[in-house]
């Protein structure tokens, strides 16, 4: 089972409240890769992610974790699977009757009851720090803004340092700073070769991070393949996803050309502080600047420049 995919879905179908939300879905998540699933509202993205994460039980087909069927796992294997995986909910899904500290501590206490109070506290503080939450952890989720709740939800998924992370719309409805932080975290997890499955209605995450891309429509996985190939998919049913990715790529190439022209202008101009800079990303880019779009130093929040350049080539 060493070479088995981290997660594999074989002919999975699911029905919720009388509707078939997943229809005969098969794909696999490779070790250390980031797979992004795109699709419109009601396309079955969240159901797919929950089924792959063992949160929802499929009506048909199999979900395999490193070759082992989730449905046939012993309780010990099941616990091991959940210890190794984290799930970020679209609406945070924090436990309202518990403090933020307890929300983050529960996975630690549950999976390793021998941990001392100090060890649990250290793990909780570290997770909160990763997502940039520095306020009081004794508050209840209801006291936070929705963006803060989402960040704490992300921290809860990270508290056990999972090998496999499922993320349901991780950056939607977040302010720019928080979204950048989420992108930073995904970039760091990618750098540490964590396997990540993300569903998103926007092309932003796919463009920045996807190693593999899937497109869902009405519960069917229309296509799933490596990102480099996905951008070139020309099937009309996939256009809504791939068209946006191609547009981003073109825009990035345009940005790169502008920056190049600006750099040349800077080099040839006698004045060290030229006025009327051309439009485009600021040199040195933000923490989550599009890496690979030519903006210098924009690697923290996206696929690294080299890799993207190779792909673009």
């Amino acid at each position: 089972m060493e070479n088995a995919p981290v997660i594999e879905l074989r002919g999975v179908s699911a029905t919720r409240l009388g509707y078939e939300v997943l229809k005969d879905i098969s794909f696999s998540l490779a070790d250390g890769e980031t797979s992004v699933f795109m699709g419109g509202a009601g396309s079955g993205k969240s159901s797919l992610l929950k089924t792959a994460a063992g949160v929802s039980i499929p009506d048909g087909g199999k979900v395999l974790f490193r070759g082992r069927d989730l449905a046939a796992m012993s309780r010990a294997e099941e616990l091991e699977f959940h210890r190794l995986s984290g799930f970020v909910f679209q609406d945070a899904a924090l436990w309202a009757n518990q403090s933020l500290f307890d929300n983050l501590a529960l996975p630690c206490r549950f999976h390793d009851p021998r941990l001392s109070k100090a060890e649990v506290e250290r793990a909780v503080r570290r997770a909160a720090e990763i997502v940039g939450y520095r306020d009081e952890l004794s508050s209840r989720p209801a006291e936070l803004s929705s963006g803060e709740r989402r960040l704490i939800g992300l921290a809860r998924a990270l508290v056990l340092d999972p090998e496999l992370l499922f993320m349901d719309e991780p950056a939607s409805y977040l302010d720019e700073e928080s979204a950048d932080r989420v992108y930073d975290i995904i970039a760091q997890l990618r750098a540490r070769r964590r396997t990540i499955a993300v569903v998103s209605g926007s092309s932003d995450i796919a463009y920045r991070f996807a190693d593999a891309l899937g497109v869902l429509k009405e519960g069917r996985l229309l296509a799933f393949g490596p990102y480099a190939e996905a951008v070139a998919w020309s099937d009309p049913s996939l256009r809504s996803a791939t068209g946006r990715l191609r547009a981003r790529k073109k825009a990035a190439e345009g940005d790169a050309a502008l920056i190049e022209a600006w750099a040349e202008a800077l080099a040839s101009a006698p004045d060290p502080e030229p006025r009327g800079s051309p439009p485009g990303p600021e040199p040195g880019g933000g923490a989550a600047g599009r890496a690979g779009d030519g903006s210098p130093g924009g690697g923290a929040g996206g696929r690294d420049g080299e890799a993207k350049d190779e792909e673009d080539a």
Partner: peptide, 20 residues
């Protein structure tokens, strides 16, 4: 009502995701 509220807020799913 408490459990029902937890289902609606996906808190039950969050427990399952953790392994509880």
């Amino acid at each position: 009502t408490e459990l029902g509220g937890m289902v609606v807020a996906h808190e039950i799913e969050a427990y399952v995701a953790v392994g509880v």
